[in-house]
Amino acid sequence: MVAQIELTAMDVLMVRLFDAIDEANMGWIVAADRALREAFGQELIDLVPSYTTLMLHYDALRLDHDEAIGRIQRVLERLEPADTGLGQCHEVPVWYDLSVGPDLTRVAERAGIAVDEVVRRHCGRDYYVFALGFAPGYSFMGLVEEALATPRLKTPRRRVAAGSVGIADRQTAIYPLTSPGGWNILGRTAFPLFEHARRGEPLLRPGDRVRFKSISREEFVRQGGDTTVLESAP
């Protein structure tokens, strides 16, 4: 752990704990998130955990800068990693199909395996939720096995349908809302990420684990999924 506190804006500090993405970071990030929320209480405006950092926006009109740093230091001195086994485990049903996941071919070709094998491997392990960002409820997850790692599209799509499941390098994610995006799309889920995020109760939180499950078109439709075809990569 590197543990640095950096000035980020007039009233924002960055707590940097690591310098590389690693599943083993999550226990520390989750623990730091809880401890910092408690230490700052009413003086906390926002706390944004990510892969290796926590960005802390505090109320600078009520809390002195040095006191803010002191509180962070005290948290870090006593920090013990949270048991990530306590994070929730979610099964996310996905309809993997070329009509809604046109980049299955690209990922398969790069890996030198069949499309079915891409699906089997994408479903073959638990992914940690590293961070939420980009859009309400958008969860960055990983790590995808090396063979499936595929860089972002050179030109992002203008519209990626809500529920699209994608890969970028060794990360995987679900688009909660229809939005522009450059990830390789493999399929679609009816998992209601946005509906929960807009109520302030995200389904997926940092430290949670996710396992994707391949389902049929019929099941996807029964779950309320939208079968509108996704355009091929531009």
Binding site: T8, A9, V12, M14, D19, A20, I21, V48, S50, Y51, T52, T53, L54, M55, H57, A131, G133, F140
Partner: peptide
């Protein structure tokens, strides 16, 4: 860099 929080005015 690895993605991290972005403050207003960054």
């Amino acid at each position: 860099m690895i993605s991290e929080g972005i403050p207003l005015g960054a």
